[in-house]
């Protein structure tokens, strides 16, 4: 799938590259069609990455030697109204 293993930044850079190539006059139709399809897939992927993921908020306790404990933090969500 397009965009797999790419960072978000890399996806944006590739999209810009595709767009600039598409904007070129001398592009062959076949190549253009491939790029256009890749671009649309990348747009979908990047949107998915933005819209689907809701980041975690965790406090990391403990130590590397004795084990790290992850504890979910609520504020920013539940306590948002209080601020």
């Amino acid at each position: 799938m397009a965009g797999e293993g790419m960072t978000f930044r890399q996806m944006l850079d590739r999209l810009e590259e595709i767009t600039q190539t598409l904007e070129r006059e001398d592009l062959e139709l076949e190549e253009g069609l491939e790029l256009f399809e890749e671009g649309i897939k990348l747009l979908k992927e990047s949107r998915k990455k933005l819209a689907d993921a809701r980041g975690k908020v965790e406090m990391l306790l403990g130590s590397i030697d004795e084990g790290v404990v992850r504890e979910e933090l609520a504020f920013g969500e539940k306590n948002e109204d209080l601020i």
């Binding site: 908020v57 504020f75 920013g76």
Partner: peptide, 25 residues
């Protein structure tokens, strides 16, 4: 974790860019 600063940081990150994960030490 008890300070107001951490709250400011986390709520502002959440507000601006919800996909980001935040790990507090």
């Amino acid at each position: 974790v008890e300070g107001a600063a951490v709250r400011d940081v986390i709520t502002n990150i959440r507000k601006r860019f919800p996909p980001a994960s935040i790990y507090l030490r």
